[in-house]
Amino acid sequence: MSPKTASGNAPAITAVDLAKTYPGGRGKPPVKALNGLSFGVAAGSVFGLLGPNGAGKSTAVKILSTLSRADSGVAEVAGIDVARHPEKVRAAIGFVAQKSVCDPMDTGYENLVLAGRLQGLAGSDAKARARELLARFSLTDAKDRLVKTYSGGMARRLDVAVGLMHRPAVLFLDEPTTGLDPEARADMWNEIESMASTESMTVLLTTHYLDEADRLAGRIAILDGGRIVASGSPDELKRELRGDAVIIEIALDADPARAKAAVDRLASVRDVTDDARIIRARTDDGAAVLPHALAALDAAGVAVASATLARPSLDDVYLRHTGRAYSAAQAEEVAA
């Protein structure tokens, strides 16, 4: 569908064994942000780097976008070594930082034209491209307003437009929807999806939202402690878990241990756990197993409050590979 360039199948990004340690400062031990990070991104795809805050996502993006340097390891972006020829990499990439990349005291239009001019576009080209992107991101009516008057969603869409001004081969999106309300998030997802197909470029997306990676990325890598613990397409990763989750909530006065034992006795389930009043199990065919499970519980005298079947989510993938629930990992971060 989208026109492929000659190098269409070559990887747009390769990272091999990247390591980066930050000094800890005042009596604290040094922080190992990256610890042997390796991955590749095929040209023309959307790749998601997923992990809680502090997993190393932003450090990886900073190194690949030439903002920072790795202590060791090699990385290429658009076929160019980031450490040896950073200036060539900079002409080939767009960078949308976690924080706004726009000047609040300039208008949306001025921000775009300035970005285009700094990237080497001629004045008329920059203006035409700015108008095109303003229309695409539904910002035409706000084009002559100062960015400080924009809503969070509008400002974030403008950030992405700034990154697209010079039609980069690779676009870095560092947590594009953090801090947006659900509606603005959904808008942004739609924009990223349509832009990835019309601009024929590679997108490296970092996010700490599992649903965002699931929705947007063709392939994802899960980072934990500065290295990749799992990678593949979202479906592959979920399939690795083999089968559906059966989640049964038992009544308030029921005995969890008894309930767990009853479900455990079924031949076709595995990984049975109980967490307060919730019994979880994994099975290859949830629809067939659920009636048996309910019958077994009934026979054991355990009253059931609710029963749910779920396809495995990236949450489960994360739990499996890091040994922690995703929400728990995020909570640790907040506490730290």
Binding site: A91, A97, K99, V101, L118, V162
Partner: peptide, 16 residues
């Protein structure tokens, strides 16, 4: 101010 936002990082990752 540019560093507190992402403006400085954007400049430094471009050919500016």
């Amino acid at each position: 101010q540019d560093m507190a936002r992402g403006v400085m990082d954007r400049f430094l990752t471009s050919p500016t």
